[in-house]
Design a protein around this nucleic acid. Structure first.
Length: 259
DNA sequence: ATGACAATCAGAGATTGA
């Protein structure tokens, strides 16, 4: 089973490019972030025509996550637990059953800039809630996959110019510590199991020719529970999409699971 | 230190992003 995550930076602007990539990459499940659309305006029919079921958790103008799946989805839930006053659409969960049941979580973690400030406070508070949710899911001792745009550069090798990010909300120690706390529960950063060294990125800024200079950062991740990590057979980034026409500033990353 | 680029909503330019 091939599961992908892709921050598409606006479904309205990216629907055609997404369709083209789906046809080429043939993922069974796709987690989307930054759909920047309310549920009613999401162009679900074009994906349903390809055999996907569509579950959205949208919001006007900003944020918004969705799941496309060729397998039936069960127990779909929306919103990250832990704060009833948080109305930002950044979290969606579903269970998919093929050979084995997997709990799939799609996330769009807050950016957090500028630092310091309320946006950074929100990021850290959101990561606390994420850690708690991850802990609850892990306790089930079943395959769990938490993937999406984490807005976290895990290590220096995950940025072309780490010094430029040193005090940024994506890379400063406090942010990386919060991310590592989740890993330390027992989750695996899928990409780093199978890929080594610098130069592997999932985001390139639109500005200053970042793509042409490969001035990128790796901020889109798959975190796998032990039971899920044992099923993984491959994990890759489809970087070439960034060189296409009117691309998102992120590219897809995917895992292959024997599940 | 600043801005560069893009999407959205709206119908200009502010807001957001990373």
């Amino acid at each position: 089973m091939k599961i992908a995550t892709f921050n598409i930076n606006g479904i309205k602007a990216r629907a055609r490019a997404l369709l083209k990539w789906l046809e080429a990459a043939q993922p069974d499940i796709v987690l989307l972030q930054e759909i920047k659309s309310v549920d009613e305006a999401f162009p679900g029919a074009m994906f349903e025509a390809m055999g996907y079921v569509v579950e959205t958790h949208g919001q006007k103008s900003f944020n918004g996550v969705a799941i496309l799946s060729k397998l039936p989805l069960e127990e779909v839930t929306r919103g990250l637990p832990g704060d009833d006053t948080d109305d930002q659409a950044r979290w969606i969960e579903a269970t998919v059953i093929n050979k084995t049941a997997i709990r799939i979580c799609g996330l769009y973690l807050p950016n957090g800039n500028p630092v310091p400030g309320p946006k950074y406070d929100y990021k850290l508070a959101w990561m606390d809630r994420l850690q708690y949710r991850a802990r609850v899911l892990l306790a089930e001792e079943e395959p769990v996959l938490i993937a999406g745009d984490y807005n976290i550069i895990p290590q220096a090798e995950d940025a072309a110019r780490p010094d430029a990010w040193r005090e940024d909300a994506l890379f400063r120690l406090e942010s990386r510590t919060a991310f590592r706390k989740i890993l330390n529960l027992g989750f695996t950063d899928a990409f780093r199991v199978l890929n080594f060294g610098p130069g592997h990125y999932s985001f390139w800024d639109y500005q200053a020719g970042a793509w042409d200079r490969n001035d990128g950062i790796r901020i889109d991740h798959f975190l796998l529970s032990p039971q899920c990590a044992d099923l993984m057979t491959d994990c890759q980034i489809d970087a070439e999409l960034r060189g296409g026409e009117r691309p998102s500033d992120h590219v897809p990353i995917w895992v292959e699971l024997d599940a």
